[in-house]
Design a protein around this nucleic acid. Structure first.
Lengths: 184, 184
DNA sequence: ACAAGTATACCGACCGGTCGGTATAGTGTC
DNA sequence: GACACTATACCGACCGGTCGGTATACTTGT
């Protein structure tokens, strides 16, 4: 009987994988346990209820979210004029993690929307940080909305854009905001 | 035994209401039937499987989507210079229907993501229509992304913006794109 | 005009299976 | 010996789907 050093993380990963493969509704505890190569008892040992598993999923996600945001804020602070560029680049960056993020949000939203509260707070915090860094609410919102839009697209498997197109789109947005910046 | 004149529509409405109230996962056939004041047998008469109900949900939604798009395209065609304004205004318009739309997408995505295909096609068509009307892909993408972002926000109950703020955001985006327009 | 037949629209009990959760006895590791 | 599990059995609730039956509306032969 091998002790798993970070069993919780393994289970969380498995849960995400299950959602990706079978859809949010079909994420049952048995299936997750099997995927994580853990007995059901083992799973229940770490997460006493399904709700606690779901909660852990978004909590891990929110944690990652804040970590990413710290990087953005750092970039914004150091390069004053380029703050928007930094913000948008990060917001629109194609990220493997973002896909998983979308999936986790989807499961939780489907099972128990109330659990999204902490994510909602993180989202609002992000907006506040952006505006606090000298951006007007509107410009921050544009960045935020574009980021959300891209996430939704990836999350549902939409996003008809090629990688090259995505780059062009990003460039366009940066130009748009920079022009606005200099006009103000 | 009263015959309902448009029973299918009533059931579809009920399904959406159930999702809104209890979350996507808890949308069972029994609950939907009860909500629609139809017996389970009655529901199964109209929708032989749950999948067919889900399919009907997004099909109705896609139909509405195309109807809305027709209006936008009309506006774009008549006022050449203001095409972007018209497009963006419609894309960002706060719409009660959009909320239900998001919810329906959420259920279907949770149950059987494959069923989203027709919506995906509609989404792509919309982009093609925008680019076909003289917009570059990038500008069309910005409109599209912002629209998606707003939908995601509403869909998950995010969107910390007040109505006045939303108006400002829209104005900002319009200004941004108009400036880009004149610069080109 | 009306009975007979047929298609349509709907009811609600029921079935097999799955789900979240509980319980319990046992096992290797620190 | 506490901890971190495995393995398995079980429970009640609920789920999607079936089925036999019934009420209503439309057609048709006479």
């Amino acid at each position: 009987m091998v002790r798993k050093p970070n069993c919780k993380e393994v289970i969380l990963d498995a849960a995400e994988a299950v959602v990706m493969e079978m859809g949010a509704v079909h994420m049952s505890l048995d299936v997750v346990a099997r995927k994580a190569r853990v007995s059901k008892g083992g799973l229940m040992y770490h997460f006493t209820t399904k709700k606690s598993l779901l909660k852990a999923m978004i909590e891990r996600l929110v944690k990652q979210y804040y970590k990413d945001r710290a990087v953005v804020l750092e970039k914004i602070k150091e390069g004053k004029g380029r703050l928007l560029k930094a913000g948008i680049l990060t917001a629109l960056a194609p990220d493997k993690k973002r896909d998983r993020m979308g999936l986790s949000i989807l499961v939780v939203a489907a099972h128990d929307p109330e659990l999204l509260k902490s994510l909602k707070d993180a989202h609002r915090d992000h907006l506040n940080e952006l505006t606090g860094s000298g951006l007007t609410l509107e410009r921050a919102a544009v960045i935020s909305l574009a980021s959300d839009g891209l996430m939704l697209s990836e999350m549902l498997g939409f996003s008809p854009y090629s990688l090259a197109q995505k780059k062009n789109i990003k460039d366009t947005m940066i130009r748009m905001i920079e022009e606005l910046e200099s006009a103000a």
